[in-house]
Design a protein around this nucleic acid. Sequence first.
DNA 1: TACACAATGATAATCATTCTTATTTAGGAA
DNA 2: TTCCTAAATAAGAATGATTATCATTGTGTA
Lengths: 141, 141
Amino acid sequence: MDIIFREKLQEKGLKVTPQRVAIYEAIVKLNNHPTAENVIDYIKENHPNISVGTVYNVLDSLVENTLLKKVKTEKDIMRYDAILSNHHHLYCAETDRIEDYVDEKLNNLINEYFEANKIKNFKVQDIKLQITGKFNNNIKS
Amino acid sequence: MDIIFREKLQEKGLKVTPQRVAIYEAIVKLNNHPTAENVIDYIKENHPNISVGTVYNVLDSLVENTLLKKVKTEKDIMRYDAILSNHHHLYCAETDRIEDYVDEKLNNLINEYFEANKIKNFKVQDIKLQITGKFNNNIKS
DNA sequence: TACACAATGATAATCATTCTTATTTAGGAA
DNA sequence: TTCCTAAATAAGAATGATTATCATTGTGTA
Ligand SMILES: [Mn+2]
Ligand SMILES: [Mn+2]
Ligand SMILES: [Zn+2]
Ligand SMILES: [Zn+2]
């Protein structure tokens, strides 16, 4: 499971620390784009002495090394995503609810489009759709 | 020019104040997705007594009334956009540079796609592409 | 096992944003 | 035009997510 994560840390030249492992596991387990605070709350049970600054530092360095991604919302709080495969987000500004939107056909459509229509003076690294609107239910699909 | 803006304020039931006009004009003139601080700095010259809280309040209420839009970036600072027509953004995370990306053909493609492929349990209000990458020059096109 | 340096914990500082409250003002009514 | 009142603003304090500082600890390596 997280043997892979440990290996990735080593590849990137980052030391394997219990904090890094715990934080990464928290993001994976929490699963719905948690905030730093969500991570801290979750980790505190098994890891009561973790420091707030450490959580922010670890999150930053994992993003920096592409082991996590940032997820931006309307709110003044950053959220994080352990799913690195190309996917998009459904977002409701009223409730700040986020759900993943995976659609390989759409990804292909967009990739083909930009293959045929290059953007001048810009090298694309990542294209992500922010789909804003309203959910019709309260149940996580 | 901003006669239209004054009319829009009235339509929405918002009073036409010098602050609101100045802030809106600043966003339009600054033109590249300014922050609240950019707006304050710009306005201070002609309007030295404007209050920081007022700028945030006005920006919020203009967004609320769809006279402006928020633009999210990797950074912990909100930016604002006076261009309401459907367009996307080229964004470089390293330099925090943003440029508009207008592409009607792409908009049609995406609209058609979601027309044919409805998202279950979600009513789409807005779809925006966040195109992350690197600019090849320093000149504003 | 020892060492060097990266990482962490504790805590203070930062700073974009929000809140509070007294004062001012836009705009409708008289 | 003048009055009135709710809405808006100015000033400054407070908030809270994030960042910085620095002494201590721990990982990976020799
Ligand atoms: Mn912030
Ligand atoms: Mn904040
Ligand atoms: Zn996601
Ligand atoms: Zn724009």
